[in-house]
């Protein structure tokens, strides 16, 4: 495996007294695409929050390019080149479509992504650019959320359930766009309920179960029974 861009070890994460992650370990290589799968409440979103700084933990639990970032605030993590497409899209309702994209570029990192590049990827957004983001369909909102993350020109991008609540045809479109998004050296973590989808776009996967890593391996060769066991915890 190439040098890891992200190395998580011994990660415990909490909501108040409630522990959501237990001793999670995970590595992503430069340019690698990982799938994170797991049932509802397994801790996938908590893992995304912990990497992006929305949930702050002990510094050494999350290492990014050799630097301990586990205790940084989300804005500091963003500046280092990690972007999150959050679960449920979470666009800014007071901002137009274009403003949602522009604010994604606020961190000021250089790279291939710009307003024009995003509009080229999702032409419909250019047509709708002056509209309120809440007036878009679910699929278009997801495009804005993805575009907003890309505008930061991240080196590591986190997708949390980008197909949640979307029609199958839209999901197909968005996954068709993914290879064009995760190009040249960008690394990605893809959280997804749809296991087949997740495995098809990733090289390796991690399965979470009740806050722990229950299985990890190569996406192409994993046996379905093993995943079922790791997913639902049935022996």
């Amino acid at each position: 495996m190439p040098d890891p861009i992200l190395r998580i070890s011994g990660l415990d994460a909490f909501y108040g007294d409630f522990q959501a992650l237990y001793d999670v370990a995970l590595e992503a290589g430069e340019g690698e695409v990982l799938a994170i799968i797991g049932a509802n409440g397994a801790g996938k979103t908590t893992l995304m929050r912990s990497i992006s700084g929305l949930t702050q933990n002990k510094a050494a639990m999350v290492r990014y390019r050799g630097e301990n970032i586990g205790a940084l605030r989300a804005d500091e993590v963003a500046a280092k080149g990690i972007a999150l497409v959050p679960e449920g899209r979470q666009l800014f309702p007071s901002l137009s479509v274009e403003e949602n994209l522009i604010i994604g570029g606020q961190v000021g990192r250089k790279g291939p992504w710009s307003l024009n590049a995003v509009y080229k990827l999702f032409p419909i957004l250019q047509e709708r650019r002056h509209q309120q983001s809440t007036s878009l369909s679910g699929g278009q909102q997801q495009m804005v959320a993805i575009g907003r993350a890309l505008m930061a020109n991240p080196d590591l991008i986190l997708f949390d359930e980008i197909s949640l609540g979307l029609a199958p045809i839209i999901i197909k479109d968005i996954y068709a766009a993914l290879p064009g998004i995760i190009n040249e050296g960008m690394s990605a973590l893809i959280v997804e309920q749809d296991i087949t989808k997740a495995l098809s776009v990733s090289s390796r996967f991690y399965c979470l179960q009740e806050g722990r890593v229950s299985l990890e391996g190569a996406s192409a060769t994993v046996a379905r029974e093993d995943i079922s066991r790791a997913y639902f915890g049935v022996a």
Binding site: A78, P93, Q106, G108
Partner: peptide, 15 residues
Amino acid sequence: RATSDNQEIAQLMGL
């Protein structure tokens, strides 16, 4: 406006 809408997500934008 972004911070007023959603403080966490605004933070993700580097604010």
